[in-house]
Every structure is written in structure tokens, then in C-alpha cells.
């Protein structure tokens, strides 16, 4: 459904992706792993349309990705811990509900309840954990084919991580939605992944079914990653 064809992404002074080719199937939970600077975030940003390939093409359902194409099909959660600080939780949801036609307001309300977020609280007064939860609420409330999450757990305590994983399982429609997650906290998402993609130095090193790794190699993802990296 999402295709990277010989994608190169150059920044001013470094090469983020190098002749990167990848085909992502529909309806799966996909983990993108690799060390810092290996190109995980760049991969997601290319799907989100926030950046463009220097060479090659990235397509979604056959269409070249632009900001416009992506905004209709992709819900992107940035790794940055920023929202409009002048809004309350409720107003943030209201803003996104007005912006996206595919935004499911009642689902958002359910997630806010589930995450126990106070709607009247200002975003700037939220704890880091609750800002993380709010990001997830906005991210998962959109009824789009692709949900991207860039480091959803980073800097969050185990309680929050747990509520994010449970929220994901509860509120994603697995028949129609594909989830792509980049993370360092592999253990956190290990049991919920279908596929894992290992990236090294801007190239795809491996793409495997997680259960196959366990069945055939008797390895956890972290062990497998270490083995493949060597």
C-alpha cells in the first residue's frame, strides 16, 4: 500500500536515506526499528508529506505523496512534544475535528475518557505524560488508512506507555488501518507487532514477521536486531 522506490533523502550535510526500497502491506501493525540516526523518523516524515525525497518516489495507494495526498490518508504523530499551548484539551480536539473531515469526534471523546484527560485543562498545564496521551487521542481519532507514530513512548513512564498500547489496541480499526511505529522501546510494543523493519544507515536491513522470528529463530526482536546488526 505504501511503496518506497529507490528513495534517497539528503539533508544539507548528511544522507538520511540511501537508495531505500520498501513495500508496506495493508492492515498490519508495523514496527520500524534501528539505532539513532538510522533513518526511522525520515521514513515516517516522507510518508507524512512533510519532507520530499531527493531521489526516487514514495507512493500511497499508487499516488505520489504530497502534503495534500498525505493529509487525506495519513494521521501523523510527531516525535515533538508540542501542541498549541493556548488551547485546552477540549479545544485541541475541537480544532482537529474542524480541520479533518475524517476526524471521529465521538471516538476522540471516548479516548479522552479512557485516558482520563480533563477537557478543561490547558495544554501548557498538562504533564508530559498527559500531553503524550492527548497526542495519541488526536492521532487515533482520525479514520484514515495509515496511522504513523514517531516515538510515541519516548520520555514517558511505564503507566503512560501501557495506556498508549492499550489505547492503540482498543481504538484502531485493524480491518482498515495500518499502523507504523518507530520506537526505541521495542519491548513495549513487541507483543503487538505484526511486522518489524530493521533500518541501518539509511537502508532497509530486514523486514520480517515477528512471530516468524520467534518460531524459526527463537529470538526476541531485540535479540534478532542485535544479531542482524552485526
Amino acid at each position: 500500500m505504501i511503496e518506497f522506490k529507490n528513495v534517497t533523502k539528503k539533508y544539507r550535510n548528511h544522507l538520511a536515506l540511501d537508495d531505500f526500497t520498501l513495500s508496506l502491506p495493508k492492515g498490519k501493525i508495523i514496527g520500524v526499528v534501528g539505532e539513532n540516526g538510522s533513518g526511522k523518523s525520515t521514513t515516517l516524515k516522507l510518508i507524512s508529506g512533510l519532507i520530499r525525497p531527493s531521489k526516487g518516489s514514495v507512493t500511497i495507494e499508487g499516488e505520489d505523496i504530497t502534503r495534500k495526498v498525505s493529509s487525506a490518508k495519513v494521521s501523523y504523530l510527531s516525535e515533538l512534544d508540542v501542541y498549541y499551548s493556548f488551547y485546552t484539551v477540549g479545544e485541541t480536539i475541537g480544532y482537529y475535528a474542524s480541520l479533518y473531515r475524517d476526524f471521529n469526534r465521538s471516538k476522540a471523546e471516548e479516548i479522552l475518557d479512557y485516558m482520563k484527560l480533563d477537557r478543561s485543562k490547558k495544554v501548557k498545564d498538562l504533564s508530559k505524560g498527559n500531553r503524550g496521551r492527548l497526542k495519541i487521542a488526536v492521532n487515533l481519532s482520525r479514520e484514515v488508512p495509515v496511522i504513523l507514530m514517531d516515538e510515541p513512548f519516548s520520555g514517558l513512564d511505564p503507566m503512560v506507555r501501557d495506556s498508549i498500547v492499550k489505547g492503540l489496541l482498543s481504538f484502531v480499526d485493524f480491518q482498515t488501518q495500518t499502523i507504523i511505529i518507530t520506537t526505541h522501546e521495542i519491548k513495549e510494543i513487541e507483543p503487538i507487532l505484526d511486522l518489524v523493519i530493521l533500518i541501518k544507515d539509511g537502508k532497509v536491513l530486514q523486514m520480517e514477521e515477528v512471530e516468524e522470528i520467534r518460531i524459526h529463530q527463537n529470538l526476541s526482536i531485540v535479540e534478532w536486531m542485535k544479531k542482524e546488526y552485526e
Binding site: 493529509s71 510527531s78 508540542v82
Partner: peptide, 13 residues
């Protein structure tokens, strides 16, 4: 500037 990624993620032109 701080929220450029949110601003540009918008479906609006």
C-alpha cells in the same frame, strides 16, 4: 516556528 510541523500537517493549502 515552534509548531511548524503542526501547521504544515494541515489539510489546508
Amino acid at each position: 516556528h515552534k509548531t511548524m510541523h503542526l501547521w504544515l500537517q494541515s489539510p489546508l493549502s
